[in-house]
Write a protein that binds this DNA or RNA. Structure first.
Lengths: 143, 143
DNA sequence: TACTAATATGAGTGTATTTATCATATTTAA
DNA sequence: TTAAATATGATAAATACACTCATATTAGTA
């Protein structure tokens, strides 16, 4: 009942990229060093995010990585679902083939309620808003 | 981001017991057969629930298992926390020693919000209410 | 063309967790 | 003493996860 390491790494990398001016390329090695994430793993994660259409990658000299669209159109849910797959807190929410209690299971609807709330919260939070909240926090706590 | 098998088994067993008159003992073997759960695993799970004070066990001939308190005072959260441990959707919610971004992390509060909602939903659902909801469902769908 | 700097990708490894089994011990009623 | 039940610890099997490494691909540049 926890986010995976890869999920956390992906969010950190997306935060890093979202704080840059849109269109400016970054290097995976720099992100890894800055966010203290294993570089070889971050490469794989970035590959998934590129394939999913959240990032653009440019190979070769002067290559790098950028957001594929503006940070205010990318949500936490977008990133998490790429890395973790669709959120299913309980097997029986995937489909009736995984649970023979459907139709008379009261637990089902509880998980459904929790999951729906979770998804709603995560899809209402864009990386643009996260970045501006962090800037605010840093100003507040700066000495 | 999913409930474990053991967590599901525990909930099924608690549902079974909650549907019985309070104080009537049941046998683990019967619960396992009825709920289609591996018996040897259910034994271990029941051991945890006994140790946590949710169940009473009686050894020896005519022994068995009962709820330790009324089903309307046992919640989904109680059972899940015994089997899965405290719910922490994200490592950084456990404590600052697991996250060096605390103080300037906007993601933190999102997970906090999701987690708080989840806990609230789960602790507001007692096994007594689950049982009566299931009875209602079975009447509705009965032919 | 050859070199260099960057990402892309797939195979493989080690470890931790989960699931499950088995054997044995303990308890209690009859 | 026996039978019926739970308790427990050792262990195996399966799966998922975190991570590494080697190699391929691409594109700019001298």
């Amino acid at each position: 009942m926890k986010l995976s390491m890869s999920g956390e790494y992906a969010i950190l990398a997306m935060l890093y990229l979202s704080a840059k001016p849109f269109g400016e390329t970054s290097h995976i090695a720099d992100i890894a060093k800055d966010q203290k994430v294993p570089e070889s793993i971050l490469r794989k994660i970035m590959g998934h995010l590129v394939k999913a259409g959240l990032l653009h990658s440019y190979r070769g000299k002067n290559g790098g990585i950028t957001l594929a669209r503006a940070a205010d159109s990318i949500t936490l849910l977008d990133v998490i679902e790429v890395i973790e797959g669709k959120i299913f807190l309980n097997k029986c929410l995937i489909g009736s083939e995984f649970c023979d209690r459907i139709g008379s299971c009261a637990v089902h609807s509880v998980w459904r309620q929790v999951q729906d709330n979770m998804i709603e919260t995560l899809e209402n939070k864009t990386f643009a808003s996260l970045v501006s909240e962090e800037e605010l926090l840093q100003q507040t706590y700066a000495t």
